[in-house]
Design a binder for these strands. Sequence first.
DNA 1: GAATGTGAAGGTTTTCACAGCA
DNA 2: TGCTGTGAAAACCTTCACATTC
Lengths: 218, 218
Amino acid sequence: MISESSKRKISESTIHRLSLYYRVLSVLEKENKETVSSKELAKREKLTPAQVRKDLSFFGSFGTRGLGYPVMELKRQIGDILGLNRTWNVALIGVGNIGSALVGYKEFQRQGFQIRIIFDNDQRKIGSNHKGIQVADIGNLEKELKESKIEIVVIAVPATVAQYIVDDVVKAGIKAILNFAPVNLKVPEDVFLRNENMSMELEYLSFALINLQNGKRA
Amino acid sequence: MISESSKRKISESTIHRLSLYYRVLSVLEKENKETVSSKELAKREKLTPAQVRKDLSFFGSFGTRGLGYPVMELKRQIGDILGLNRTWNVALIGVGNIGSALVGYKEFQRQGFQIRIIFDNDQRKIGSNHKGIQVADIGNLEKELKESKIEIVVIAVPATVAQYIVDDVVKAGIKAILNFAPVNLKVPEDVFLRNENMSMELEYLSFALINLQNGKRA
DNA sequence: GAATGTGAAGGTTTTCACAGCA
DNA sequence: TGCTGTGAAAACCTTCACATTC
């Protein structure tokens, strides 16, 4: 929860960088480092120390002048801000190519994103188990989402049907959706929608190889 | 190839938006639309018309005043800029969870990114075929990359070994790398490295649910 | 009349630079 | 002395608004 600072507008990039800091802090914790400076944190994610300090300062004063930031404490704080010190009930819709990969993706579980139920329209898959998770009929979407107390829905269906699916998901009252289909989905104002566009970075590389002189850019 | 405009700095966001325009133009082409206005293009990807025009103007004057942009022609132009009107020889390293999903991901092929060879260190997989693509021994990386004339390498190995792998990939002379491992990799200045962080957007949703009032943000 | 292309304005994000504190 | 926290400056990106062209 953001304390008094919620008035100031916090940018998307700042939040994304918090994810990076969190990741680095997890590593530092394993390395038994007690404190870390903004300089070190910056170096590990190719940012500037000033950037790190500014990002953190939006949420509070976590550091000690002359010393740096306490690793464990800062990790906990960022975890609180990002909601990683708890678990989230996630549903996955579509268990094809991408979908199955996500079910086995350890990183999600590690961060508290638990896939509780999978939906598909393939009768051969419905009723079965996919890596220990129940595959339900997409026809029972609303009922099952409610029963499983789902908070976040991940969409991994073909682009052609994604909008219909997302409409049903919204109707079921879900307020947070992560979309892997390569299409721009329409949702009401009060629903959070984020897109994961898997070919965008590949296209950037392609652009870079053709047009840019020399490499590197995070 | 960027014509005279290569002096002006083109931002990363502009390139990412070109990817979006390209996607919309493909749809419009299928719908047999001949021309499209910046307004329509903007609406389909939730941007502003001015943004669309500015983005395109970095690369040339593709439109006709009073009329809009010719769909087919603009798609071809953006394809040229992004390098999508050709094929790229891609190698995939690591055919676990994420790796196998990428092999079957149609969107990549459709855009000309052809996975020619797969590397793994699992003796049971080496020598076999994965969806029709040869799985080679990671030990022969340099030799095989050269023989297959690979231009882009996709890394889908565990975070713990990713840096070692990427070092070898760089040694083999590869200049473009897409990294799916949740770790920041070090590469020389002249190598393009992009990261695909699959949990970042999920973390943003988590943050949004806890901290933000009402939804939506592309 | 309709819609592009683009300088100028406005807004946002990053970096600088230093005061302040352990 | 070392490093944070933060206003101010600089850099960057987006939107406005209008002259221009079809």
